[in-house]
Each structure stands twice: as C-alpha cells, then as structure tokens.
Simulated scan of single mutants.
Amino acid sequence: MAALYLVRHGQASFGEPEYDQLTQKGRQQGVMLGQSWQTLPRPEKIYTGLLRRHTQTFQAFNEQVKLNSAVNVLKGLNEFDHNDILISAQPHWQNQQDVINYFAKLPSPKEALNKAFNQALATWVDKQHSQHYQENWSTFKSRCISAFNRIIEDREIEEQQIIAFTSGGVIAVIIQHLLQLSDQQCLNVMQQLRNTGVTKILFSVDRISLDYFNNYRHLEQVGASWSTYR
C-alpha cells in the first residue's frame, strides 16, 4: 500500500498582524520533525499548500531529511481564511486592523482572541452554506476533499511514500471524510491537532484507511512546551 503523511505546519504567528509566518518555535518544530524522520521511509513525493507557513515548515523539515524531489504546490491544501471568519463574526469589525485594535486593549489579548476565534469558527461551520463568507464551510470541505482525492489519484507507484504540508482545518476535514464524522466532531478533531503533528493514511486501488492521527512524539520527547496548538 501507499502512504500519505499529512503534516500540520509549525507554530504560526497567531494574533500578530502577519499570521502566515512561522515563529522561531514553529521553525524549530519543523527541524525536530525532520530529525525524528531518520528512521521512517523517505517520502518520494512532496506536496505543500500555497501558504508560507507550509513552505517554511517543509524547508525546516528538509534541512534534516534532505529530499531532492520536486515540490508539488496544491492550492486545495490551503487553510480557511481565519481573518474573514473573525471579521464576519462582528458587524463593527471592517478589517484585520479593527480586530487587532480591539484585542490589543484587553488584559489577555491572545487568550481573548483565541476564545473569539473558536466562537467565530463554530458560527462559520453552523452557517455552512452562507454566502456571507468569502469561502463557506461547505465549499471549504469540498476543496479539501478534492485536493485529497487528487493526491491519491496521482500516485505513481504502488507503494509510494507521499508527504503533504498543510493546515489543521484541511487535515480535520480529511479525517471527517474518512471516518464519516459530524461537523461538530470535525471541529473537535481540529482543536486537537498539534503543530507539526503527523497523520498517516494508507491507500491502495480499492482501499483508504487511517493508520494514525496527530502523532507529535517528536515534540513530547523534548518537552511539553513544544506541543502547541496555535
């Protein structure tokens, strides 16, 4: 059987003006993942989304693994637009700067932002066909599954090892698809995904199955502070 490893990106700059950028910790998480990969099969095909945090995580990983294969960039592996989801949650927020200004005045800005984002995310999922968003939940799910199917269909050899650097929402939707989970269960899965956690999927011509989910032992071995969600 072939194997697809879905890797969530390293810690990005949540709560900062430019989110799509790894923190120093996020980059080191990618390096740690590469170090831990030495005893695993070398990926023969590589995918990333279009986001910088995907590419940066792969680059940190590859400093250790040193893969020479071409990188296939697949837009369907991109995360949902968290700014659009947040801004749409409050009628008085018109742009990202409004959100930043609002939370900057609070005693615990990042904690408050995280709570508000989770609430906005739940609303987005609940209004799954709403045209109020640039990309609604239903459209996002369809895009993720299309990207997943393309990777599966583009397998070149029977036992090919494939790795894809993507985001938590994409991985959660793929898990939902494989296990036939509800939207609420999908959200629960999304909340559990660690930065640089690895999910492995096995597949053949007539079978697709989840082998393991959200493996972040490469972080646990170093210390609990490295196991981040955002």
Score class of each variant (00 low, 15 high):
residue 190 M to V: 00
residue 61 F to S: 07
residue 208 I to K: 09
residue 13 S to G: 05
residue 143 R to I: 03
residue 67 L to V: 03
residue 213 F to Q: 06
residue 37 W to P: 02
residue 29 Q to L: 11
residue 134 Q to P: 02
residue 221 Q to N: 09
residue 123 T to N: 13
residue 156 E to T: 14
residue 178 L to V: 05
residue 158 E to N: 14
residue 189 V to S: 10
residue 74 L to R: 13
residue 146 S to Y: 15
residue 213 F to G: 04
residue 158 E to G: 12
residue 113 L to W: 08
residue 132 H to A: 10
residue 186 C to I: 04
residue 106 L to K: 05
residue 148 F to Y: 07
residue 121 L to K: 01
residue 58 F to C: 07
residue 61 F to C: 07
residue 74 L to V: 13
residue 100 I to K: 00
residue 47 Y to A: 01
residue 41 P to K: 15
residue 22 L to G: 05
residue 193 L to D: 03
residue 63 E to I: 01
residue 212 Y to R: 10
residue 106 L to N: 01
residue 108 S to V: 06
residue 107 P to R: 08
residue 173 V to W: 07
residue 221 Q to E: 09
residue 34 G to V: 05
residue 187 L to Q: 10
residue 154 D to Y: 13
residue 62 N to F: 01
residue 170 V to H: 12
residue 187 L to K: 06
residue 229 Y to T: 00
residue 46 I to P: 02
residue 194 R to T: 08
residue 187 L to C: 06
residue 19 Y to E: 12
residue 187 L to Y: 05
residue 171 I to W: 07
residue 24 Q to W: 00
residue 124 W to I: 03
residue 209 S to Q: 09
residue 174 I to D: 07
residue 112 A to V: 08
residue 96 Q to W: 11
residue 147 A to G: 14
residue 182 S to C: 05
residue 11 Q to H: 02
residue 21 Q to H: 13
residue 84 D to F: 04
residue 228 T to G: 09
residue 29 Q to N: 04
residue 46 I to C: 04
residue 89 A to G: 10
residue 28 Q to E: 08
residue 189 V to H: 11
residue 165 F to S: 04
residue 8 R to V: 06
residue 26 G to W: 01
residue 105 K to C: 15
residue 136 N to K: 11
residue 207 R to H: 00
residue 224 A to C: 00
residue 160 Q to P: 15
residue 76 G to V: 07
residue 23 T to K: 08
residue 156 E to C: 14
residue 210 L to Y: 02
residue 33 L to C: 06
residue 81 D to A: 15
residue 203 F to T: 01
residue 36 S to G: 03
residue 151 I to P: 13
residue 194 R to D: 11
residue 192 Q to M: 10
residue 131 Q to V: 02
residue 145 I to L: 14
residue 187 L to E: 02
residue 80 F to G: 11
residue 217 R to P: 05
residue 80 F to S: 14
residue 198 V to D: 01
residue 226 W to K: 00
residue 173 V to K: 14
residue 170 V to Q: 06
residue 2 A to V: 15
residue 184 Q to N: 10
residue 136 N to C: 13
residue 121 L to T: 00
residue 214 N to I: 08
